[in-house]
Computed example of a mutant assay.
Amino acid sequence: MPPTDASTDASTDADTTPVADQGEPAAPPENPDCQDTLDLRLPDELLALIVEQDGSGSADGTDSGHRSTPAFTGATQHDLLDDVGEWGPVTTPSGVFQLVPARIERDLKLISRWMNDPAVAAFWELAGPETVTAEHLRPQLDGDGRSVPCLGVLDGRPMSYWEIYRADLDPLARHYPARPHDTGIHLLIGGVANRGRGLGTTLLKTVADLVLDHRPPCARVIAEPDIRNTPSVSAFLSAGFRFSAEVDLPDKRAALMVRDRALRTVL
């Protein structure tokens, strides 16, 4: 679990997109996909990783080559998230959006600049020289593919930073009733001009839909924004997530947000 907040509009101004009534959904059908019950069976991927680490240690991954052109492509190495870089672009009400896996050589300067924005740093706690951001990115890029850091590219421009991760294989799973293939998301909006106008809500819904479309075994998309980050929590609610619980994590008290596949067309 990255020591970060799943921040959307990380400024103190609330998202101006109207928030739907957050009362109880009207008699949703009973479905095991939307029940927060504990599944004690270890995911197959986790069992395989345990065997691999016991036998041969972790693999050494490397970064892709430097791209000097402004074009962004989605070519990636294999991951445990059904190849995020191959999910492709989608059309949203705000423009054409695509998740592009991050590369140190190409993207470090930009992501570090975003992390040093005071409104972002208040929740992500990664302000400082570029080495701070690099040390946060590298374990994900060199890891086993359970977390994929990405740029969010809107109409050809990088404007947000995302982490798509296997919540069931993350330390977060110790703090809530995780189920196999639960997929988590972290988000920050990079530019001040893109905050506070509902864009976070639009993109959260878009990315949650991408997860559910491209990861058939995943029944739930999970997020855990800092409970103090009201704009972020509001954006998740407006994007069809439901508030499940408050959870005490090592670095924050979080609002556990869940978007259920079974309720995808209801909320």
Rank of each mutant, 00 (worst) to 15 (best):
V120R: 02
F236A: 04
Y176C: 09
I185H: 01
G156S: 13
D15E: 13
D168Y: 03
K109Y: 10
D33I: 01
G65S: 15
L151M: 05
E45G: 08
G65R: 09
L210H: 02
A262D: 08
I227W: 11
F97G: 09
P29T: 14
K252Q: 14
L40G: 00
F123L: 07
A208R: 01
T37K: 14
G190I: 02
Q35A: 13
G23W: 04
A71P: 02
P3K: 04
T69N: 12
Q140I: 02
E130V: 08
G152E: 01
R253F: 04
A75F: 12
Y176R: 00
R174D: 14
P225N: 04
H186L: 10
G191P: 00
P32M: 07
L169D: 03
A122E: 15
S234R: 09
L108N: 06
I222A: 03
E125R: 04
R264W: 05
R261L: 14
A20E: 14
D117T: 03
S244G: 12
F241W: 01
G85T: 00
S238V: 02
R67F: 06
P25S: 04
H214A: 09
P149G: 04
L38C: 05
K109D: 15
V233D: 06
S147E: 01
R103L: 13
S58C: 04
G85Y: 07
V192S: 14
S234Q: 12
R157F: 10
G88K: 08
A219L: 07
L46F: 09
F97K: 07
P2S: 15
T76R: 11
Q98M: 11
N229Y: 08
W114G: 05
L110N: 10
E30H: 13
D5I: 06
A208E: 08
T91R: 13
S160V: 01
L108S: 06
A6V: 13
F97R: 02
N31K: 00
R41L: 08
K205Q: 10
A75V: 15
V148W: 02
M1N: 07
D44P: 13
T76V: 07
A26L: 11
I50E: 13
G184L: 03
F236L: 05
A6N: 09
R157C: 06
L172P: 06
C150N: 03
T76C: 14
G191N: 12
T16F: 11
L187D: 00
G196N: 07
R103D: 12
E135Y: 10
H78R: 14
S7L: 11
P29W: 03
A75S: 11
P149D: 04
T17E: 12
P177E: 08
R174T: 06
